[in-house]
Design a protein around this nucleic acid. Sequence first.
RNA 1: CGGGAUGUAGCUCAGCCUGGCAGAGCGCCGGCUUUGGGAGCCGGAAGUCGCAGGUUCGAAUCCUGUCAUCCCGACCA
Length: 582
Amino acid sequence: MRWSQTLIPTMKEVPSDAEIPSHQLMLRAGLIRQLMAGAYTYLPLGWRAVRKAEAIVRDEMERAGAVELFMPAIQPIELFERTGRKDAFGNVLIQFEVKRGDRSVHLALGPTHEEVITDLVAHQISSYRQLPLTMFQIQTKFRNEERPRFGVLRTSEFIMKDAYSFGTSLEQLDESYQKMYHAYCRIFARCGLEYLPVEAESGPIGGDASHEFMIPADNGEDRIVRCTGCGYAANQERAATGRGAVAAMSVDGSGELIKVDTPDVTSIEQVSKMLGCDARRMIKTLIYQADGKPVAVLVRGDQDANEGKVRRALNVETLELADEATIREVTGAPIGFAGPVGIKCPIIADHDVAQISDAITGANAADAHYTCVNLGRDYQLETTHDLRDATGGDPCPKCDGTLELVHGIEVGHVFKLGTKYSDSLGATFLDEKEKRHSIIMGCYGIGVNRIVAGLCETQHDENGLIWPLSIAPYEVLIIPLNIQDDEVMSIANRFYDELKAAGVDVLIDDRKARPGFKFKDADLIGIPYRLVVGGKGLQEGLVEIKSRTAESPDKVPLVDAIGHLTRLMDEEKAKLAARVPA
RNA sequence: CGGGAUGUAGCUCAGCCUGGCAGAGCGCCGGCUUUGGGAGCCGGAAGUCGCAGGUUCGAAUCCUGUCAUCCCGACCA
């Protein structure tokens, strides 16, 4: 492609709305342009990168035995009513009515396609002999994000590869899941990403039924803990904290229980400041409604309760923070003064709470806290649970190591669904004994444009983007330094034609601009290899070839240029390939 | 949805406090010069100061409302 014939609107200055590197660089390099919050146009350069990621995803899906299909983005709302997800999605689901003659049809824009594909399978599959089957598509998904952010990392419209497996047994599900997991590792490796598979919330099946693929990045929205020792890695919401129930169910504190006045002081932070105590000596008491009944959840002052863990510990369906009326009822005080001593509802506590002696908690009375609260004397627990978020510094649940907290960008998710959708949409099969069963499903998603954004976020220097060869919009950028010099132009054009003929994705900067300007743009858009044709070099019969990451260019005789470039690219391809699991 | 910030030319921003001609740099157009790391000079085009209402002789500037965008938090199959 000739630069003069495409649209690559690079920018010297940083747009004020962009804060994180990927957003800034994608705008500056002319990859994207914002239409509104959460909706971006992919400009020619950005779109080429997306298409390359798509091609790798498609290739690996097919290699793993999945077959491609394409489903509608507009879907009847009725499907979501049948699976109960109209309410579950709530405002995230984009819905609207359209007129068709005298009827009004209620539609949704697909936020994902479990409903559509399960409906398809319900109609098309009836025998165990047709299974297992894995199908995928690459398609735009629509989710009304309440708060789109981070440039193209979180948008209301995005491209997703979604795959769905259908099988007759948990064994078949396991096998499909493993194939997808493996394909995902290959995809992200081929894309040149640093990725980290982590255990994730797994829903009804439990166990190792769900993994997320994360790109470690400071600006990632997700929090992950990982063990520096054994490699255990999990989403923070999922991670175990690596502490068993404490043996001693009482703590010897020496202090006398004292009620102190703490007027209008309600938060952990305020109380610890006022009383001059460490938040780790405080007990945070959260009042929840668990299946409609109040329960007090105790965690250490500096820690956060994990609602998923609380829900599982209590074995309840719904869990939400109690309203003020309920809190007044069980504590006898307004919000902010709850504590375990004398509270009028059941209590469950995190392991770490039982180890605090002379603790500080709310006094269940307005404007008052207790100091020197001790388990066994002042309140009772039968046992303790893992109820809090794991965090950096916690012991690893799998080994003697310590967990560290890192942020990540979720680019993929593999999930064992079970029969949730097949049950509600009637996707069943007959086994060899003519018995009817629900088909067992798995679903597997990849945020295709997040691959691109994730690369931009993590692979750049002060001058601009650094694309891996596999995703780069173009592999080689030819820069004729002076387009008015006929010799320079004819040689640059010859290289352009030869590289194109050799199947290389090549861009030639044929703009009438000064060399420095072109070099700056070249670094900014981050094409892996740069071939400079300039008058000075030509006098000695040389051109310059430089990889984006090299310190300085190689000066190469004209006749060797193509060979040299090809060698460099082959080496780079081999390096990428070496990281791809067999 | 709660909290915070910002809206002035394509981009970055000044002007607003203390009301009185719509500004700069970059980019864009034309010309000359220049040609190995975002060149120089000359000339030019370009803005409903987010929108609406109000106060005022007069509003980018003050007041009210509203919309949009960004950030933090809540939410995120």
